[in-house]
């Protein structure tokens, strides 16, 4: 019998991958990497690695003419388009093993980090934030005639449906926080947003509300809003300006996009980047680089600690 060091090393690597993924799930750190919706997929990966580990273990000892070492048997006729780990060890192989081990080392040894304002800057935050459909001229004309109408409407809503104002979102819908909702339920959420004078941007509805508000910010002018997020600033902001921002994760942290609202209040200059705050304010409209942008006039705010789940995830709507 002869110990195959390379085979043993491969077994160790497979087990390490399995346990790294397991560890991330066990400690809950996995939410810092991927959208919890896809958690089960990475659990599958962990289990496959474990199975492969048990298979690999049988190859660590080479017994001559052993019955379980099949690759030896058909070495002459099996397709040799990959390395079986039997060939001799050299520098090139050392490098390729190091490359594979590298993520294991950083995964075990380095802490997971929540993305911060510096990444937001690299992603071109303000470009993403000014994601408003630029209102064509026709719309501007309409806009002039709109405000009284909107006022009227909101008055009616305010009187007729006071209960809706107290209940920002259908509580049943919120409590469940189902992974998938039907299109009907989604439309219901959006309808509630449109009727509410007080918009509460909680984690569950944030992405949906944000998208809806981006479509036509004028509709939401003058409404109260409550939101939380981390402070992001950029060169060119006034002293009293900052962005209360969040990262939206579709699949994994690599596809994070930044969303948030430009906010104005006197104490803004005293707040550092990455400070988490919770704020109330009123939605107004401003222009930034020639684009219409919502700006929130903050009425009151407080510092909070970073939430356990710092990221937002889009609501997935069942289509079929």
């Amino acid at each position: 019998m002869q110990l195959q060091f390379q085979q043993a090393a491969r077994a160790l690597i497979l087990l390490a991958f399995s346990s790294l993924i397991f560890k991330l799930h066990f400690t809950g750190e996995i939410t810092k990497f991927i959208n919890p919706k896809y958690e089960s997929l990475s659990q599958v990966a962990s289990v496959i690695f474990l199975i492969l580990f048990f298979i690999q273990i049988t190859r660590t000892w080479k017994v001559k003419k052993s019955s379980y070492h099949h690759c030896d048997q058909h070495d002459h006729d099996c397709d040799h388009n990959h390395d079986h780990g039997d060939s001799s060890f050299n520098t090139k192989k050392l490098i390729s093993y190091f490359i594979i081990v590298f993520p294991l080392l950083t995964g075990f040894l380095l802490p997971a980090k929540v993305l911060d304002a510096s990444i937001a800057n690299k992603k071109g935050a303000i470009l993403a934030l000014s994601n408003q459909k630029q209102a064509p001229k026709e719309d501007k004309n309409k806009e002039n005639s709109n405000p009284p109408e909107v006022m009227e409407e909101s008055n009616i809503n305010g009187q007729a449906n006071p209960s809706i104002d107290d209940n920002p979102v259908d509580p049943a819908l919120l409590e469940n926080q189902q992974e998938e909702i039907s299109e009907e339920e989604y439309n219901q959420l959006i309808q509630q947003l449109e009727q509410n004078q007080n918009i509460e941007m909680n984690d569950y509805v944030y992405a949906a509300y944000y998208e809806e508000m981006s479509k036509d910010i004028n509709k939401f002018k003058g409404r109260k809003i409550e939101l939380k997020g981390f402070v992001y600033k950029e060169d060119g902001f006034a002293q009293n300006q900052l962005v209360i921002s969040r990262f939206l994760i579709t699949h994994c942290v690599a596809d994070a996009s930044i969303i948030g609202f430009l906010s104005e209040f006197p104490e803004a200059s005293s707040l550092d980047k990455d400070t988490w705050i919770k704020a109330n304010g009123v939605i107004e409209i401003t222009t930034y680089n020639g684009k219409e942008l919502p700006v929130i006039k903050i009425t009151d705010w407080e510092k909070i600690s970073e939430p356990i789940e710092p990221y937002l995830y889009p609501i997935s709507v069942k289509i079929l």
Binding site: S42, K113, S118, V253
Partner: peptide
Amino acid sequence: WLNLNTIFLSILIEALP
């Protein structure tokens, strides 16, 4: 570096399955 590492691992974890 930690940001880099987090993004790096997240791409891997996403792709491995």
